[in-house]
Amino acid sequence: ENVVSAPMPGKVLRVLVRVGDRVRVGQGLLVLEAMKMENEIPSPRDGVVKRILVKEGEIVDTGQPLIELG
């Protein structure tokens, strides 16, 4: 699984990683606000951040690609 998608609609509050960062399974990639709750979106696997597909403040839909892992 190379693309991390939004599990719910919401607003991207914070991106916690940068392109080139090594991440571990379960590590927070970004914080999504949904229904006034902050939800940290975890990495599904170990890898390297290849691309960040959203910006802070952006509104996303369920299933929208957020981050690509390499």
Rank of each mutant, 00 (worst) to 15 (best):
E1D: 01
V3R: 14
V3M: 02
V4E: 01
V4R: 13
S5Y: 06
S5F: 09
S5G: 06
A6Q: 09
A6T: 06
A6Y: 04
M8L: 00
P9H: 06
P9G: 05
P9S: 07
G10Q: 07
K11F: 05
K11C: 14
K11W: 00
V12Q: 14
V12P: 15
L13N: 10
L13D: 07
L13G: 06
R14G: 13
V15Q: 11
V15C: 15
L16P: 02
L16T: 12
R18H: 10
V19M: 03
G20I: 05
D21H: 14
R22E: 13
R22V: 08
V23L: 11
V23P: 06
V23C: 14
V23M: 00
R24F: 01
R24P: 07
V25D: 12
V25Y: 11
G26T: 08
G26V: 08
G26C: 14
Q27M: 13
Q27V: 13
Q27H: 03
Q27E: 08
Q27Y: 12
L30S: 13
V31Y: 08
V31M: 11
V31T: 05
V31G: 11
V31F: 11
L32A: 02
L32I: 12
A34V: 01
A34C: 15
A34F: 02
M35E: 08
M35V: 11
K36H: 03
K36D: 12
M37K: 05
M37N: 13
E38S: 10
E38V: 01
E40H: 07
E40K: 05
E40Y: 11
I41Y: 00
P42G: 04
S43K: 15
S43H: 09
P44I: 07
R45S: 04
R45A: 04
V48W: 09
V48K: 08
V49A: 00
R51D: 02
R51L: 03
I52H: 08
I52G: 09
L53E: 07
L53F: 11
L53D: 08
L53C: 15
V54L: 00
V54K: 07
V54Y: 08
K55I: 03
E56K: 13
E56G: 02
E56A: 01
G57Y: 03
E58F: 09
E58S: 12
I59Y: 11
V60M: 06
V60C: 15
D61F: 02
G63K: 04
G63V: 07
G63Y: 05
Q64E: 09
Q64D: 12
P65M: 11
L66S: 01
L66R: 15
E68F: 13
L69K: 14
G70S: 11
G70T: 07
